[in-house]
Design a binder for these strands. Structure first.
Length: 309
DNA sequence: ACGAAATGTCTAA
DNA sequence: TAGACCTTTCGTT
């Protein structure tokens, strides 16, 4: 269950664990057998993320490539609503991609790998994949399993470029000019800004949580038409997406409730994570008004009518 | 056991 | 706007 920060973390993890290797690639489920056969035995190069899209190039020999270059076979994965990768391996493998505690899953709900510390290199055997595993990457020290993706396919460079063409600026790339581009894309439209922040052609990567909480953090009502939000406030919104999502990449979890609003005794752990997301009917941490909820373009939208104008 | 919801996106009507 | 899709998890019978 990924927003862009999860996909960026995954690109880092899969690069560290598999780039430079010739992983064995299979499709236990059988729905990616052709693609797996095409990639199997090639060298995995550095994976990259753009928004929620994951790209990993494969070539016969090690090389440096840029995103969308002609030549390599590009594995393209979109996790959709509930795709996920899980990892298993010996202590050496788990240690490679560990920042802090060893993790079995990259993304939300990251799990500690049981016994990874004690596990001897020689003891590890690849576990039998579940029959829903679309793709398994295997190298001698560990495996990565992909289940439930919305998209998983091998693309040419020009096909990758066609995907990228439909994506707006990614706050986690934050390339020169992206801030201005985001501002102008929003201000061109009279669609509610809450809908535009979810539109991957306007900005690629934010999902329902960052949409709700970043709009709260900068005080913009999601119902306000894009062309009625000032350039200044949209600049602040971009900056907040950049910083909130960067923290998500660093921590592997979304914690968007600003520290000054976290109550000393929250109702429960879950309740302190978000500012407004999934808090409808409860009191706003900042002003005490009741958090509102409505459906917007088929997704649940949460905001504070008191703080957001 | 069963149903609904989930941090997503596409297509058809 | 509704439905389809890919899977897991959590709450309710």
């Amino acid at each position: 269950m990924p927003e862009g920060h999860t996909v960026h973390r995954l690109a880092g993890a899969l690069t560290e664990l598999f780039s430079g290797h010739r992983p064995t690639i299979t499709s236990p489920q059988g729905r990616f057998s052709q693609g797996a056969a095409k990639l199997n035995g090639q060298i995995a190069l550095s994976a990259e993320a753009w928004g929620k899209h994951f790209f990993m190039p494969f070539a016969p020999e090690p090389t440096e490539v840029t995103l969308g270059e002609d030549g390599p076979d590009w594995l393209h994965v979109h996790l959709g609503l509930y795709g996920s990768w899980s990892f298993d391996g010996d202590g050496e493998f788990i240690a490679v991609h560990t920042i802090g505690a060893p993790r079995r899953r990259i993304g939300e709900r990251e799990q500690l790998s049981e016994g990874a510390d004690e596990r001897r290199v020689a003891e590890w055997e690849p576990p039998t994949p579940k029959d829903t595993v679309r793709v398994r990457f295997a190298q001698p020290h560990g495996i990565a399993d992909l289940t439930g993706p919305n998209q998983c396919q091998v693309l040419s460079g020009s096909e990758v470029r066609a995907v990228l063409k439909r994506l707006g600026p990614d706050p986690l790339r934050n390339n020169p000019g992206d801030r201005e581009r985001f501002i102008s894309l929003v201000r061109k439209r009279k669609v509610p800004v809450g809908q535009l922040v979810m539109d991957q052609a306007v900005t690629a990567g934010p999902g329902n949580i960052y949409r709700a909480d970043c709009l709260f953090r900068v005080g913009i009502s999601p119902l306000r038409p894009g062309n009625r939000v000032s350039e200044h406030r949209l600049g602040l919104l971009w900056d907040d997406l950049v910083s909130a999502m960067s923290e998500g990449v660093r921590d592997g979890i979304i914690l968007t409730n600003p520290p000054e609003y976290i109550p000393l005794d929250p109702i429960d752990e879950q309740d302190r994570r978000f500012a407004v997301y999934q808090r409808s009917g409860r009191a706003c941490w900042r002003c005490g008004n009741t958090i509102a909820e409505m459906a917007m373009a088929g997704r649940r939208l949460f905001w504070c009518p008191g703080c957001q104008r």
